[in-house]
Every structure is written in structure tokens, then in C-alpha cells.
Design a protein around this nucleic acid. Structure first.
Lengths: 233, 233, 233, 233
DNA sequence: AATGAATGAGCTTTCATTCAT
DNA sequence: AATGAATGAAAGCTCATTCAT
């Protein structure tokens, strides 16, 4: 009888691009080791996202990554480090996508509303993304166990996102498209108008939000935001 | 040597009023049993709030409630029910406070802004309340384990709160103080403007928000809300 | 929430006649107490028989007897005494029935075989009786826990039955119907021929033996017994 | 201070030969694992036999096998499987011995009685064997908890033994040494004549039967059996 | 470097038993 | 006498982690 035949977890699998070093820079064996570490981290996020931190055993992660349990420990110190590394890696990836959405505000044409709607739609897409939702959910869930982790994850995501958005708003303010106001506060409110209703309506990810409902939320957010912050034309 | 000398948990203690039946309605012994059940639920919330569901052992709850572990099991079926009952009870209490805040919108005087600021301040107080924060946090954290619980808790708190708020907004709309708009959407946005920034700034409750910062958030929320929804005077 | 609402056990219920004292000999209240003790013992045997000693909780017995758990303890010292008393009481009842069957050998007519077949059938009936089977089964099952109990139960049943049977055989031997042989040994063998195959075929009571199969066993036992022990006519 | 200093169980220790695979067929490490599994099963039988299923804790089995409790669980799924595997393994071993005894009937010389006495003595030896007794006793005792186990154990022991014996009787019948009769019934009765009195006299294993008493039982069984079944010479 | 095997520590849950009313 | 309530003690089981191969 094989000792622990853990079945593979039924869940989304998350693969993300790594900032891969140049292939020639490292020997093949070293490369293989990095690949395995990579595989373990991805497996870890897949399983953590599906089951949460506590309900996930290291055994399950090892099975998902097709390695032995001890191999996981040879790459990451313990379950805590495994979790932290996983979260950091995913947070980085989510942030990149979010920033890309905000960057669309760098080129604002005549139609101010159109651009904001575009950004809002894109951010909604990122917010509803399984990966982003799982990331937030995991971070929130572990506040009691790893109180510092939340700052870390939020620092890498919401905060930097809000800052980037505030930058755009400041520029729009200078160019007279947005009325004079604290850009940080405005950015914070825009994100709140967008994500707040979505979190509520999705019941923290346990309910699927229909596309048209998402659109309503997105449009309403932009509408309220522009009513409050658009410069009087 | 007592076998399990669990030290008392260092944490806030939460006592909430129960909808107490008339004292004469029950015999003393029955009353005593209810009191003990009450004590167990309060102890449970105290410890759960401080440590989270998984890190909390039933033993610790028993110690906090000054009863034997088996006594806990004689009142609540198992750890899961203990958690659910605790959450339900606290959610009810939080909801009552929130609704009281919103009720202030029933009597709106000349100064529309003044009333909304009053409501906002009161809701912020409830939002930053340790008890409410812990409730949300615990619910979020257990999405993976008890997916239905989140709907239950949100149903008893955010959703009913938003409905009550929407009712007020609808009346204000009819009386011409708020411009015609979907009251549900408006209520949802008002709450998002209030709680979103607070959750972010408090780092999900791991950081204390200074009073003046809270005031800024509250005032900004009202300002944006009224800019977007106040009837053109 | 009532603490332990144990559902009644789905099982045969065993009521047996008690050697009732004369009604006038005791006060009514005392009579009630005896009745309750009686009810507890019967309930105990019902539940023990259905579930075995270990899987039966005192709570279940109390529920079956419609009394509180503590009441059981006020009548019987502890679970062990409860079990022993129950077993002794039932053993007495079973023995009475068995002895009645053997008594039919007191009046042997011309047809020796007919009488033995009658006795065999009657004993088979007692052997397959749920009550007798449960008694043996419970005693066997607790050899490890109560090693002396088995002697007690066997002493009150098989041994005294074998003795009674040996008495009859001795008389038949004297009267020339049975060949000279050790009556004890003969009695023992007759019972073995009867009960051995039945225990095996019933898989210790887990399988129902069809009536015709029982008849075969019974007839075969008598046949073999008479071939070995009937006097040469 | 070790937390669980379980003392070793005072009891017979049962080692039985395993159908060992060729040593070269497996790697040393795998061999080691099998050895340990073997040790655990033997320890389990030792402790189960001494204390019964319910009074035996997995902890005690682990101690007897000189492994940690968790190691037991890594080899066998849970206490139930541990018990079933143990019983199956021992049943197989007991059966082998019993069949060997019956095989002596393949070569019947002139003296029919002598062969049967030889077989009877050998079977009595197997029946009184601590190991066989414990096996039956454990199976009987767990009828309530594992109703199917009894069929399994009896299937592997009594039933197959009776069949083998019936085969021999059939051949003896064909060769005219045993009178024409149902061989199955005859086999069943022979075993009943042998084991019935022994179980009764040994008080289900709680009393040691003196050697001369065993001889009486054995001789009487053969005598009665041959009187009933030997062909008229 | 990778892994099979083993383990220490801990947690949930049950239950016989006692005690105050 | 009867009972609701409370509890001490123990058992089954899991899992993160280590170590020899």
C-alpha cells in the first residue's frame, strides 16, 4: 500500500511567466532546479487558492507539483515560507496587469468618459480574475496567522495601484480635465467604487457575477466618479 | 498538575447584549444554562477574533469561558456549529447598530450634508469597531472552509444595511433632496466609499487608523456622494 | 438545544417475566422503584444486544428506558454492574426455557427417536431465539473485559443444561434405552451436535438460517446421537 | 518526560511465518518497509488478543511494535483496517495448520480409528492453540461492530476446513470405510463434536484444560463419530 | 538533489461518572 | 427519587517536519 496517494486537486491551475534569466547564463542542472522550484510555487498557489492555507497539506502541494514531499522542503524552508513566496510571486504578477490597465490613462483623448470606462472595464476584469481574487482572499484569510503579510500584499498591489492611479489623476487635474482635488483620495475612491460593489455582489468570490451586472457596476462607478471629479466643462 | 493549563487569550473581550427573555419567564436553572451558553459564545468570539478559526482550539474557548471542554460540546454540537452560532449572533448585533445609524436619515433637516456626515461618522465608528472588523475578517477567512457562511453573514449585515440605506435614499429622492437615481446603486456606492478606503488603510485591521484620518475618509465619502447624488439646488 | 437527544435504538425489545414478589408485600412507591429498575435492565439488554457492550452508551440505555442518565446510575452502580445484572437476569430466563425442553425426556414412550427429535427441535428453537443468541454473543464478546462473566453465564446456562440432560440420559441408560456410557459426555456431545452446526451456519447470528436447514441439522444430530448411543435393540 | 509512556502489554506474542517473497525480488528499503508492516501486524494481534478490540489503543500497538503511533497509520489506514488485516493474516495461518491436520486422512491404513484419533488430536492442538482461540474470540466479539468480518474469518477457517474434511470423508465413503452419508454433514458434526466440548470446557479460553481432559474429549469425539459413520465391517 | 519512511505534537470528539437542585 | 448540567480522562487521527538512503 503506497503511503499517501493524495489525489490531484480539482482547481484552476495558475501559470505565470517568470522573469526568466538568459538560458545560457546558468547550467542546465541549475536551470532544472529553478524550474522545479517554479513548479512547486505554481502548484502551491493552485492548491492554496482552491482550499485555503490551513486545509492545504504540504503533501497535496507536492502531489500537484509531481514531487516528493521532502523535495518541497528542500526548496522552501517550511510551509510558511512556501506560502509567503507564493503570495509574493503572484502579487507581483497581478500588480503588473493592474498597472497596465491604469496606464491607459496616459493617453486621454477628447472623450474623458470613454477612457475612464475603458480603464474601469479593464480593472474589473483584473478584479474578477480568479488569480487576483484568490490572492486577496488568501491574504485576508491569514491576517490572524501572518499579520504582516497583508501589508506586504497590499503594498505590492492596492497601494501601488492607487499611487499609479493618483499619478494619472494629478496629471489630468493639471491639464484641467479633472477638478482640483486630492489625487490620492480620488484614486482611492475610484477603486473603492469599483471593487467594493464587486466584492459584495460576488460574496467574496463564492458567487459568479453576470457580465451585464459587472457592466452596471463599472459604468456606475465611472459615472459617480466623473460627477464628483470631472472638471466643470 | 492540571493536564491542560491553557493560558487565557490576550485579546479584546466582546460582550454583547442578548435579547433577554423576561426573567420570570424561565426557571433559574434554565436561566443558568442559557447564561453559560451565552458565556461560551462570547468566549468563542473573543478567541476566534484574536486567533482565527484554525488556530483556535476548543480547549482555549473553554478556558476563556471558564468551563470544561466537554461543556462546550454539550452546548454546541461541534467546532463548526460553535463558529456558525457565534458568527450569527455577532452579525445580528452588528446589524442592529448599523441600522440604528442609518435610521438617522429618517429625520433630515435643512442641512442635508450635516445629516449625511453624521451618518457617515456613525457608520465609520461601527466599521472600525473591533467587533465588526473581526466579524468580517473571520467570515472572509473561512470562505474556503464554509463557503455558505459568507452569504449568511453578508446577508445579515451588508445586504440588509444597504437595503435600509436604499430605502432612505429613495425617500430623499421622492422629497427632492437627492436626484433621481437607482437607490440601490447609490446606497451600495455610499457604503463602498466609506468602507473601501478604511479597509485598505487599516490593512484589514492590522493597523490603527488615526482619528483625523478617519474624519478625512468620512468627509470625503460624503462629499463625493453628495456631488454625485445631491439634487441640483 | 436539548443536550443529548439520543434516538431510540431500532431493535428487538426483550421483556421477560420477573419473579414478582407478592404485590401486597411492598409499598406502592417501592413497587414503582422496582418496576423502574426492571425497565432499565430490559432496556439495557435490548440496547446491549443490538449494539454490543462498547458501542452502547449509558445515555442510550437511559433513553430506551425513558429515564435520565443519572437515574440509571442511581439504580445500578456503574456500566459494568448494569451489564452483569442484565446478563444474569437474562441467563436465568434462558435457562428456564432450556430446562423445560429437556424435561420432555422425563416421559419417554415407545418411540425413542420421536422424543429426542422433539427435544432437539425445542432446543433448536431456544438456540435460535434472538434472546439466547444475544446472551451468548454478549458473553463471548466480553471475555477480554470481564473474564469471569463467561463462567457465570455458562454456569447458569450450558453447564446446568448439560447436567440436566445428563440426568435424563443416565435414567434412560438405566432403563436400557441408551447404551451404557458416560452420561455427561453424551449430553455434552448431543448439545455440541446441535449447537455447533447452528452457530457455524448462522455465522454467529449474522445470517438467518432457513427453517428446513434447521430441521436438517436437528434431525442429523439426533440421528448421529442415536446411532452412537441408542441401546442395541 | 515522554508524554505517553504506554507500558508493553503482558501477553503471548504471536509470530507467524509470512509467505516471504524471494529476498532478491525487492530492494532492501522496500524489504524494510515490509518487515515493519509485518511487525505492526504481529504486534496488533498480540495486543488485540490480550485485550480485545475496544480496550486496545493504537498507541499500545505502536508501543508493542516499537514504532510511533503515526507509523502505524502510515501502514494501515485506520484502526478498523488494522484489525481486519490482522485477522485476515492470522486466519490464513491458522487455516494452513488445520488443513495440514486434515491431510493426514489422505493416507488411511488398516486402522481407521488410529488415523481419526491422530487427526482429532492434531485438530485439538490447533483448536486449543492460543492463536486460534484468540482469532475466533476476536471475531465473535466484534460481530456487532463488523458484522461481515465473521463470515470472512469463518470462510477462511471453519468453512474451508469443513470442506476439506468433507472431501476426505467422501473418498473414505467411496472406498467403503465410511458408510454412505452426506459428507458435508458428517464433517460438520465431527468438528462440532471436537470443538464444542472444548469451547465449553475452556470457558471460551478463560480456563486451561488439562491434557488428559483434552484426550477424553478427542477420544470421545472419534468414538461417537465412528459409531455413527464407520461402515459396518 | 530527491525521496520513502518515520515521528512528535496536537486537536477534535466521546463518554462514564458525579453533583447540585 | 429523579434529573439537568458539568467534567476528567482518554482515544483516534492528521500533519509539518526530519533523516537515512
Amino acid at each position: 500500500m503506497p503511503p499517501q496517494p493524495i489525489p490531484a486537486v480539482q482547481a484552476h491551475r495558475y501559470d505565470w511567466p517568470m522573469s526568466a534569466p538568459a538560458p545560457s547564463a546558468r547550467r542546465a542542472s541549475s536551470r532544472g532546479r529553478i524550474d522545479k522550484r517554479q513548479a512547486i510555487l505554481q502548484a502551491a498557489f493552485t492548491v492554496f487558492a482552491a482550499q485555503g492555507y490551513e486545509l492545504t497539506s504540504v503533501q497535496e502541494i507536492a502531489a500537484e507539483a509531481n514531487v516528493a514531499k521532502a523535495t518541497v522542503y528542500s526548496h522552501l524552508d517550511d510551509k510558511e515560507q512556501l506560502f509567503r513566496q507564493t503570495m509574493a510571486t503572484v502579487a507581483e504578477a497581478v500588480l503588473a496587469d493592474s498597472l497596465a490597465a491604469v496606464d491607459r490613462l496616459r493617453a486621454v483623448g477628447d472623450d474623458l468618459r470613454a477612457v475612464w470606462e475603458d480603464v474601469a472595464d479593464e480593472l474589473v476584469r483584473v478584479c474578477c480574475d480568479e488569480r487576483a481574487r484568490a490572492l486577496r482572499s488568501l491574504a485576508y484569510a491569514q491576517v490572524a496567522r501572518f499579520p504582516d503579510l497583508i501589508a506586504d500584499v497590499q503594498g505590492r498591489t492596492s497601494v501601488r495601484l492607487a499611487e499609479a492611479l493618483a499619478d494619472r489623476i494629478a496629471r489630468l487635474s493639471l491639464s484641467g480635465r479633472i477638478r482640483p482635488a486630492d489625487p490620492t483620495c480620488a484614486a482611492e475612491q475610484f477603486l473603492a467604487l469599483l471593487t467594493g460593489p464587486i466584492e459584495t455582489r460576488s460574496r467574496m468570490g463564492t458567487r459568479e457575477i453576470p457580465a451585464e451586472e459587472l457592466l452596471v457596476v463599472s459604468r456606475s462607478a465611472v459615472d459617480t466618479f466623473l460627477r464628483a471629479y470631472a472638471a466643470d466643462s
